[in-house]
Design a protein around this nucleic acid. Sequence first.
DNA 1: GGAATAGTGTCTCTAAGACATTATTTG
DNA 2: CAAATAATGTCTTAGAGACACTATTCC
Lengths: 202, 202
Amino acid sequence: MRADEDLATAAARELAEETGLRAHDPGEPAPESGNGAHLEQLGTYGDPKRDPRMRVVSVAHLALAPDLPAPKAGGDANSARWAPVETFLEQDPEGDQTGPLAFDHAQILADGVERARSKIEYSSLATAFCPPEFTVGELRRVYEAVWGVALDPRNFHRKVTGTPGFLVPTGGTTTRQGGRPAQLFRAGGATLLNPPMLRPEV
Amino acid sequence: MRADEDLATAAARELAEETGLRAHDPGEPAPESGNGAHLEQLGTYGDPKRDPRMRVVSVAHLALAPDLPAPKAGGDANSARWAPVETFLEQDPEGDQTGPLAFDHAQILADGVERARSKIEYSSLATAFCPPEFTVGELRRVYEAVWGVALDPRNFHRKVTGTPGFLVPTGGTTTRQGGRPAQLFRAGGATLLNPPMLRPEV
DNA sequence: GGAATAGTGTCTCTAAGACATTATTTG
DNA sequence: CAAATAATGTCTTAGAGACACTATTCC
C-alpha cells in the first residue's frame, strides 16, 4: 500500500499492474468499455506462523472479470499467469500439505472460490463474469462453471428472465454458427436476487 | 495484537478483557457452560483518512452472544458499555456527519448489523444469540429483533422445527407465567439452512 | 372461567424441478 | 434436410404466507 491509498485502491492498482485488469467500484455496474473487473475485499489473514520468515498480515481481495488479458511480468509477481482454480485446489491424495501454492494461499483461494459460489446465488454478480452484452446461455455457463454443475437451460432461462431487474434486453441478437440467434442482454440495476438462485444440492 | 497471536485470538482476548465474553471457535457449537460468544471476522478498514491523527488499519470482528455481562472498565476502552445499535445508527435528520461514534465506526457497525441480518437467513447462527437451551419463541424473538420485523409464530414454528438439524429437542419444558409451557431445544448440528429463512420484503 | 402463551392444521399461491415442443439459424 | 442452439409451454411438487383452532399453564 502507498501512503495515500485505501485498501481497495491498492488492490486495484496491484491487479492492474500485474494483469492489466481495471477494477471498477463495487456497487457500480461494469463500465460500457468492457474489461472492468468487480473487486471486493475477501478477508484478512494474520496467523503469526502463516509465513515462517516474518510476520505478514494480508488483506485478500477477490476480482471477477470476463476477459483475461495476458498477465504482465514485472512488479511484485514475476511469474504471474492465469490458471484454473482446480490446479491449486485439488485434494492431495497423499494427505501431505505440500501443495503448489505457498503458505496459506490455497486456503485463501478456497475462501475466494466459496465466496464467488455463494455470492452469485443471492446477487446478480454472475454478470461480472460476462462482457457488457451477453446471452442467457453465456450467463448459464458462468453459473455452471462457478458451481461445477449442469443446469437445465429451460428452467434457467425462465428464472433469470423472470427476475425483475436482473437482465435488460438490448434488442440485439448474436450471429452464431449453426443455431438460432440468441437475444443479447446487459446487467440490470438489481444487485440482490429475490428469490435467490440456489445451487442444486449434491 | 501480540506477537504470537492470530487475528481471531487477539479479537477474542480484547473482547474478553473489555466485556467478559468468552468466544469459542467458529464452526463449533456454543459450549455447554453457556456464555460462549460466536466470533467472526467482519472486514478490514484502511482508508488513509479514516483516522485524521494517523494511519490506522483496523480488522473489525463481529461477536454474537446471548448474555451480556457487565463490561469491565480498564484496558483500551475505559468507557465500554452495552447499547442498542439504533443508538448509533439513527439517520441524522440534519444530514451532517457528526454522529455519536468516532471516525468510520458507524459504518463498521452498520456493516456488522447487515452481516448479522444476512447470516441468520442462511445459517443457524441465530442460535448464537440464545442460551444453550431455548424455546422456539425465544429463537423467533431473536429473528424479530435482528431483522426488526414481526414474524408469524405459527409459520416460524413450522419452519424451524421442520428444518432437519436446526433444532434438537432436549425433552425439557419451561415453567412460565400464564401460558402453556414451551419445549426446550438446543442448536442442532446443521450450520447451513436449506432452504434458507428469507427475511420478508419491505 | 379468563388471560396468556404454545403448538397443530388447512388453504392458497409462488416458484422450482422435470420434461416436450417449437423456432431460427448454418451447412 | 439435418444439426445445432434458443426460446416457450406444461405438469408436478415443495414450501412460504395467511389464518383458525386446540392445548396447557397461571391468576
